[in-house]
Design a protein around this nucleic acid. Sequence first.
DNA 1: CACTGCGGCTAAGCCTAATAGCTTTTAGTT
DNA 2: AACTAAAAGCTATTAGGCTTAGCCGCAGTG
Lengths: 208, 208
Amino acid sequence: MPRAGLDPATVVAAGADLADEIGFSALTMGRLAERVGVRTPSLYKHVASQDDLNRRIAILAMDEAADAIGAAIQGRAGRDALRAAARALRDFVLAHPGRYAATLGLGLTGPDDPLALAATRSLTPFTAVLRGYDISPADTTHALRALRSIFHGFATIEAGGGFQWSTGTDESFEWLIDLIDLGLRAKPAEQQAPATTAAPGVVTGRPG
Amino acid sequence: MPRAGLDPATVVAAGADLADEIGFSALTMGRLAERVGVRTPSLYKHVASQDDLNRRIAILAMDEAADAIGAAIQGRAGRDALRAAARALRDFVLAHPGRYAATLGLGLTGPDDPLALAATRSLTPFTAVLRGYDISPADTTHALRALRSIFHGFATIEAGGGFQWSTGTDESFEWLIDLIDLGLRAKPAEQQAPATTAAPGVVTGRPG
DNA sequence: CACTGCGGCTAAGCCTAATAGCTTTTAGTT
DNA sequence: AACTAAAAGCTATTAGGCTTAGCCGCAGTG
């Protein structure tokens, strides 16, 4: 019996590819074993469990997405950077729905969870985008969370087929980017005469 | 052996409650059966399958959320309505994480899927919110999708513990609402002198 | 050549969804 | 009151998923 020559990275990469093809929820240890040409229990020599596999796929996906977004905003600033980042994230999700789904619904075990670290890493391109706007340092956490929520929400709904008939999603996405750009540019003026009852304050926690 | 007196509505409601308590992914037919005091196969007299159960829970959740949001915006308009709607949705998700999780990751079978109809129904309160802003009729679909993406994204990340240390999420949420309000109010002026390369056009599809 | 360890394997256990077929309760009718 | 038929429960069983235990062969090393 010749060996398949597997290692953890190969198994995780194959799992990510397979998840993109058949959907993350349909990714089973059995199907992955079949894909890499091995019997199911053999996978446990490389990953500890299915949960471990899922987390590794999620980390891989977040790093890949961060790289794609980082590359997309090179040499851009302001609205151009925002649009490039948003499009890069959306393209990634549409091209890799399984990888992206792996990043959802995983409980964080603590602040030093590798998953949490990867999540923080994946946010760095967005901090660069925000430098193109006049956001006060005290508000960068809020702005970061806002950008993450917005594009995460759109990508999730679109990838899940939540927009009925899928018509005009491109236009809706551009409209959304424009909306956020306008809001971010109007924000600083608003700061000088806050109208909300709960005034934004300094946040000590980490951004993600 | 007296009967438990179950019917589909009771089973679905119990499933929704149980999902809120132990998490949607931990909801199994066996645990639900134990909860309602019956053996597992007996549940199949009331729901066709676990997928059927999940979809019914999702429909229940969307209708309940729509009711809560609709009630929250009564007598409000503009920014007040936006904030009330957003808070109502967020409160619902935090109070009923299992129900909300049930609404995610379900494939729509078609435009007349009961799930799709419930999704459309759940959007009606947001159309009322948008009436408080000067949005052109051609853009209401985009605006609706934007609102849905934004608040869905925030709620999902928060409910999944995605905001590390969970500090300052209240402030971040208010900041986000303010950002969207500013963007929506700046939008109409933008329409008269469009700066985006892809000009927003009429969308013929349904909003959701 | 012997040895050691990694990476495969089979076998088996447990959990879950789902179906088949039987039995009992319940409701409605005469 | 008795009968009937459907509804609602049950046990038993199948199929498939994750995971562990323990065995075996190949690779590289001294």
